[in-house]
Design a protein around this nucleic acid. Structure first.
Length: 640
DNA sequence: CTGGGGTCCT
DNA sequence: AGGACCC
């Protein structure tokens, strides 16, 4: 059954050797050949293999390490930024060979089944790689070595092909693939790694730790049982201290012991899920697929310290952490387009209790607003976190760890990689939206809205920043339908069109249709939509939601859906940030999304600017009519 | 003299 | 919100 070709999987588990230490040596070549340790606070969190050979393991105190090896070179590794960047490079290489499931910065499983199958399509491929292989004797006729596997330089001539099962064939070819992957990683990133090749994630991981550093280990099917049998149950990934203690209580030390316990007994003590998991694991079974978990589900920054007993001290720490968090959230936004909805604060107090206390709250939108500086946004974070601390701890506390982060990421219009790709495409193409932009069914309101978002997302900031103010009231006058929405898009010197409709989404569709049908909009602006409604209502609503940008503008936006409008801004802030020096000179203000005029049309500078752009002020009579209705906005019409 | 992160489950 | 687990 498991040998049916359709069930065969080849999983490779990669583990970068002493990742932080290797990273430091790579970036500072003078460290090469010397014993190196990477420190965080008082701890040497990892050492390179030279240091290990001289008696310094990882996770020892600095004092201890120095005592054992005074020559140990210590590098501070508290800032993970370079490690994150290097990890990303490495994962990208792995990703070329199959789906990658990361775990931490330095590890990952890759499903290389497809690679293997492709190579087996034209018969048994030529092999040439070095590996430790468990179960070697069964495929070669040569004697085997049970402890760490037999080290062999494999070439096809050593194999007794007719003896080899389908699974083992696949694993051997997989080892060839892995050998090439390791070369690619080293060539492209400089990093050496160890790797395990087996039929599933768990076995691959166990195999990968068997031979280090810079070695690969293949676990053939015939060796699985005798390989895992003597291992302590604790070695099973997922069995930690607590589970181990419970198992010991059941008289279980090794995997062999574990095999003798029934699922029922295990489930009784550990719950059905863990019970079943252990039952499978000790038999070498792991059916879980290699899954790309995507971008992180939480982004946090933390620091530990000894002496934090006042709110002022805590704020001092937060002022260090907050800018880091903001920076990482900004990077995440660029990469993924999503935005976090929750802010979390975690801390640990001094004392025997080891655990964290955590609280979360709605993440203030200001934290992500592109119109606020990083410093302003960091200040908001400090403020919120500080209040959270005060509320939960009062004035008397003794913190030793403080962690602030963001979670509950939600997708936005820019989360779709296709959208971001189109945007890059357009930028590369010199701002020319063309047929590549797709418009979906006209009858599906949601699809149209998405389509609009796609369109506007794709619009790059252009050199002239042409702005077509959307003058709802002027055109509405001519239409004699005060509630009409008007949408437009265009560019200086380009053709432009206006459309109106009684529905916002229709308007979006119209814009999308225009772009699709080839209306040349080499630098279209974001458009806007409005509807007549009480200014005060909107103002109040926006104010209550602390939309400082919009209020600051002192201009009027009217919509029957203020919440919707707000939501649109919030979701599209980055898209709407289409702003250029010219647009400012033209008297156009960018308010977190809407381009509109704030000056009276009577200003000659503005008037000239408008005239040059073939955008002319509305007529005095139109203006009067409109002013009698709402009094403030200077509108202008766009004349073809 | 026990980092600075993460995941998932309950 | 906390706990167990992972690196």
């Amino acid at each position: 059954m498991a040998d049916s070709p359709i069930d065969i999987r080849v999983i490779a588990h990669f583990d970068i050797d002493c990742f932080y230490a290797q990273s430091e040596v790579l970036r500072c070549p003078s460290l090469r050949g010397r014993p190196v340790g990477v420190t965080q606070k008082f701890l040497v969190v990892t050492t390179n293999y030279i240091a290990r050979s001289l008696g310094v393991p990882k996770m020892v105190s600095i004092d201890e390490a120095k005592k054992v090896l005074p020559a140990l070179v210590l590098v501070n590794g508290e800032d993970l930024t370079p490690y994150r960047a290097e990890s990303k490079q490495i994962m990208a290489v792995l990703g070329r060979y199959g789906v990658v499931q990361r775990s931490g910065l330095d590890e990952g499983a890759v499903d290389i089944t497809a690679q293997v199958k492709a190579r087996l399509q034209c018969g048994f491929p030529a092999l040439s790689f070095s590996s430790h292989i468990l179960g070697w004797e069964a495929v070669s006729g040569e004697p085997g070595n049970d402890s760490g596997g037999t080290f062999v330089n494999v070439d096809s001539t050593k194999l007794e092909l007719e003896k080899i099962s389908g699974v083992d064939t696949a694993l051997l070819v997989g080892s060839q693939v892995v050998s090439e992957m390791r070369s690619a990683i080293e060539k492209e990133t400089g990093f050496q790694c160890s790797c395990g090749v087996a039929q599933n994630k768990m076995l691959a991981k166990l195999a990968s730790s068997l031979n280090k550093p810079s070695k690969q280990t293949c676990l053939l099917s015939g060796a699985v049982e005798r390989f895992i049998a003597p291992l302590p149950a604790r070695k099973i990934p997922g069995v930690g201290r607590q589970t181990e203690a419970i198992l010991l209580d059941l008289g279980v030390q090794t995997i062999t012991d574990l095999k003798k316990v029934s699922v029922c007994q295990l489930s009784e003590r550990l719950g059905a899920r863990i019970g079943q998991f252990l039952y499978d694991a000790c038999r070498g079974r792991d059916y879980t697929p290699v899954l790309d978990k995507g971008p992180p589900k939480s982004i946090t920054v933390e620091d530990s310290f000894r002496n934090c007993t006042t709110l002022q001290q805590a704020e001092g720490i937060l002022r260090v952490l907050a800018p880091d968090l903001i920076k990482r959230l900004d990077e995440d936004r660029v990469e993924t387009g999503r935005r976090p909805k929750s802010l979390t604060l975690k801390w640990r107090v001094q004392g025997p209790k080891w655990n964290f206390i955590s609280v979360s709250t709605d993440l203030p939108v200001e934290l992500l607003s592109p119109s606020l500086s990083k410093e302003q946004r960091a200040a908001v974070a400090v403020e919120v976190a500080s209040r959270l601390l005060l509320r939960n701890l009062g004035h008397s506390f003794h913190l030793v760890v403080l962690n602030i982060g963001a979670t509950n990421f939600v997708e936005t219009s820019t989360s779709d990689p296709a959208v971001r790709d189109i945007r890059s495409f357009l930028q590369a193409q010199g701002n020319s939206p063309r047929k590549e932009l797709k418009v979906t069914s006209k009858n599906d309101a949601r699809a149209r809205r998405e389509s609009f978002k796609t369109m506007t997302s794709a619009l790059p900031a252009g050199p002239t920043g042409a702005v077509l103010g959307l003058n709802f009231s002027a055109v509405a006058d001519s239409q004699k339908t005060p509630d009409t929405h008007i949408f437009g898009s265009g560019h200086v010197g380009d053709e432009y069109q206006l459309s109106n409709s009684s529905d916002e989404e229709d308007g979006w569709r119209d814009l999308a249709d225009q772009l699709k049908s080839g209306v040349r909009a080499s630098c279209p602006t974001a458009t806007n939509f409005t509807q007549t409604q009480s200014y005060k209502d909107v103002s109040d609503q926006l104010q209550s939601q602390q939309s400082t940008d919009l209020l600051h503008s002192k201009s009027i936006f009217k919509t029957s859906h203020p919440a919707k409008l707000k939501q649109f801004f919030v979701e599209n802030e980055d898209v709407m940030k289409l702003e250029s020096p010219d647009s400012q000179r033209a008297g156009v203000t960018n308010t977190g999304g809407l381009h509109f005029r704030t000056q009276t049309a009577g200003s000659s500078r503005i008037a000239n600017s408008i005239a040059k752009r073939e955008v002319v002020p509305e007529s005095t009579s139109q203006k009067k009519k409109r002013k009698s209705r709402n009094g403030t906005l200077d509108a202008f019409v766009i004349r073809k």
